[in-house]
Amino acid sequence: MPPARRPAVRVRDVAASVSRCTVAASEEAMQDILDRIGSATGTGTGSTTTTTTGTGTGLPVLVMEGGHLAGIITVHDTTRLVRRHTLGPAPGSARG
């Protein structure tokens, strides 16, 4: 975005609609979330085990706990998770 436009752009202009997001309970298994997203896009295994509170079908995933937003899982988060489990931790990484 050009610097000159930044003062005029509001959060609502760039935010993802909640209806496009997947909403999940904090105690759900990550694999179930990934399967659900994959099923919606035609790439998953079609798992139907879910305790979700929303009907969105993509990323980001809004993680809810007690009716409040507890966190957000982004494309970057899922990519990092997949890399970590297929390639192992990054060199010099403290986490594995």
Rank of each mutant, 00 (worst) to 15 (best):
A8P: 01
G56H: 08
R95E: 10
T50Q: 03
T48S: 06
G42S: 06
A15D: 02
P2V: 00
R95P: 00
H68K: 15
T51G: 15
R84T: 13
L62S: 07
V23K: 01
L87M: 14
T55H: 07
S93H: 10
G54T: 07
A4R: 12
T86E: 11
G92L: 03
I33H: 06
T48I: 13
E28P: 03
T45S: 15
T74E: 03
G92R: 08
A15Q: 13
I33M: 11
L59V: 14
A16F: 03
R83F: 03
G67N: 08
I73N: 10
S19T: 04
G44I: 11
V11M: 14
T49H: 14
S47H: 00
P2D: 14
T74D: 01
P89F: 09
T79H: 05
D32R: 08
R80G: 01
S93Y: 09
I33W: 06
D13T: 04
R95N: 07
C21A: 14
V75F: 03
T86P: 00
R20N: 05
P60E: 02
V82F: 03
G96C: 09
G71P: 00
M1N: 00
A4L: 02
T55G: 06
V82Y: 04
T41Y: 05
D35N: 10
A90E: 07
V11C: 12
V82W: 00
R83T: 06
G67V: 03
R12Q: 12
I72G: 03
T57M: 04
G96V: 00
G71M: 01
